[in-house]
Amino acid sequence: MFPRPLTWILSTGVLLCTAAGHGADLEVELRGIHSSEGQALVAIHRRTQGGDFPSDASVVANASAPAATEAVVVVFRGLPPGEYAVAAFHDANGDGELNANFVGMPTEGYGFSNDARGFMGPPPFHDAAFSLGADAGTTRLVVNVAGAEPAR
């Protein structure tokens, strides 16, 4: 049995959402964080013209929460209907970056919606994509922030 998830309600992520009351709420449950050091960072992305994902251009909202080994839930409110993907990582050292070793391999845990993965790069947007309808109420999805993090 999992302990009761810790929940942070994060004030809206920014967003394109103007018509309050017409958006959907999204609860992102992060699992598999290895330690309570640092923070969990979550970003909501949309499809871009150029197809860049994940990128600065594709981010529509982001949020952070203290890291925890129990499930961490981050809530986004009032997302307009559309197709989205979630990217998240465990910023264990709190520097705001997904750290990597010198060959470019991430050394902090990370994950995408749908458990999407790519080979030699991030997954394509459509592999991580899901849809939110108008007045969809609350949608909950799980992102596994996995990683055998070198410890010592």
């Binding site: 960072l41 979550v42 970003a43 992305h45 994940p54 990128s55 600065d56 251009a57 594709s58 981010v59 982001n62 952070s64 990217a87 990582f89 910023d91 705001g96 970056e97 997904l98 750290n99 990597a100 060959v103 470019g104 391999m105 991430p106 990370y110 993965r117 790519g118 080979f119 030699m120 790069g121 991030p122 997954p123």
Partner: peptide, 18 residues
């Protein structure tokens, strides 16, 4: 400053490269 865009593309290039 971080935008959570996972913009370190180089980092992500490794993903399934095990």
């Amino acid at each position: 400053m971080n935008h959570f865009g996972l913009s370190r593309r180089n980092a992500l290039r490794f993903l399934a490269s095990a």
